[in-house]
């Protein structure tokens, strides 16, 4: 059984700018994780590495595989944690809005108990940034 979570944020910039921030190595390293390839020019199927030196609770190194790219609307890649503990897929979707861009992330492929918790907590935390009904939530694990 695998789990997914979704994040969404409305940004006051046009999709072209958001696309650059999601694909250019130099820009990615300034907000997301250090990236060794430009994802806007990397061939589909190509590989890259994302690193987070401040990672807590995981290795901080992701081996990326570019799966799909449709500028400036959609970017899909798989990330395998270097220590083998997870393999998940990130789907970024950009939609032009009146004031800028709606950015959505679908992060799928979380496995097992840790995956469930991660997905649930992120979904829940995203709404309130505060844990609510945690006891009740945990009672639903693996049922």
């Amino acid at each position: 059984m695998t789990y997914a979570y979704d994040l969404q944020r409305d940004l006051a910039s046009p999709p072209g700018h958001v696309w650059r921030a999601l694909t250019e190595a130099e820009l990615l390293s300034r907000w997301f994780m250090a990236c060794d390839q430009d994802l806007d020019t990397l061939p589909i199927g190509g590989t890259f590495t994302l690193t987070d030196p401040d990672a807590k609770g995981w290795s901080g190194i992701l081996d990326g595989h570019l799966l799909e790219r449709n500028a400036p609307d959609r970017l899909v890649y798989r990330t395998d944690e270097r220590d083998g503990s997870s393999s998940t897929t990130l789907t970024w979707t950009l939609t032009a809005t009146e004031h800028g861009t709606r950015l959505q992330l679908h992060h799928a492929g979380w496995e097992g108990l840790r995956g469930f918790m991660t997905a649930q907590f992120l979904r829940m935390g995203w709404r309130s940034l505060i844990a609510k009904n945690l006891t009740e939530l945990l009672h639903t694990i693996d049922r």
Binding site: A12, S13, H17, A21, L27, R30, W31, F32
Partner: peptide, 9 residues
Amino acid sequence: ALESVLDGL
């Protein structure tokens, strides 16, 4: 952080 990168752009 993404928002501040975008402001820079």
